[in-house]
Design a protein around this nucleic acid. Structure first.
Lengths: 156, 156
DNA sequence: TATGGCCTTGGAGTGCACTCCAAGCAAGCG
DNA sequence: CGCTTGCTTGGAGTGCACTCCAAGGCCATA
């Protein structure tokens, strides 16, 4: 990848209101510690992501230090979101590989995204189910005196 | 895609048996392998839960084998749900300890449940955010031929 | 010139949540 | 009786996702 960006702004769809700390295209060259500050990841983790093939080739300064671009930050945003879904890092690496391999992996990538989407829907449903259980327990506790609170432990 | 609209049939307050495999009170004595079949956990994990204090004292047969009750199954259901929220096992152990300690931990338990509830809401929000990103990417892929699909990698 | 800060590397270590192992006991069956 | 099946135990091992370490390079300020 690393093809030159042509879109003048990424705030294209859905009015993405995203990242106040970003510099405009052409000046988007962030040190690792800046990226640490932006993403909440550690420098260790950023270097590790690169080692395992989860980052798409980060630029270097003339002294060999990493210089991250806005594109890299975008990618890390996506990775962060996928991480929240519980997707294993290995699967994200697989996706990164597909992107690196070029257009002919289009179908695979599409499938991977759709499978992930289904997983996310399932997880949301599970969490809503859990929420219902919690709410039921909480209302027992809220209504009850001590003795009844103990009873609350008996119901699912 | 496994549509799981929240079924209203789960509003079982101290009543309807939600688990077809359960036996009535008084005959609720399950071997570890039955519990494995019901919960999807392994026997190893069940024993490990007990060792770390996550199970509230499981009965034994005259030969020393574990005999789980409906209450134990209820507890495992709760544990399973909490596990789905990403709650660390150590926190669940803490909750189990509070229950064992009796009524005077009422307040602590209530707080723990409410904190968990807030976490779950946060997680659901995060997942919905992720879902929006995925949907956006997927629609790029769905609309696009190969060349455009490549472009889709450029947007957050 | 030296001090401190930020960065680099490969490899080793950590914490969590299991997961498995070896050795052994008890019950049921032919 | 031996065989199989199912269960028991403490402790060791596994896989994942980091997390840290030691040793050193670069460079701006004092």
């Amino acid at each position: 990848m690393t093809v030159m960006e042509t879109t003048p702004t990424r705030t294209d769809l859905c009015g993405a209101p995203p990242h106040p700390h970003r510099r405009p295209e052409g000046e988007d060259s962030y040190t690792i510690s800046e990226v640490v500050a932006f993403t909440g990841l550690t420098a260790h983790t950023l270097r590790w992501y690169e080692r395992i093939g989860l980052m798409p080739h980060v630029d270097r300064s003339h002294t060999g230090q990493r210089r991250y671009s806005n594109r890299d930050l975008d990618w890390l945003d996506l990775v962060g979101k996928l991480r929240l879904t519980g997707m294993p890092v290995a699967d994200m690496v697989r996706y990164a590989e597909l992107v690196r391999e070029g257009d002919h992996t289009f179908g695979d990538r599409f499938e991977l995204l759709e499978a992930t989407r289904r997983d996310v829907l399932t997880r949301i449903a599970e969490l809503q189910d859990t929420l219902a259980v919690l709410d039921r327990k909480i209302s027992f506790y809220a209504d009850a005196d001590g003795a009844r609170a103990y009873e609350a432990e008996k119901v699912r």
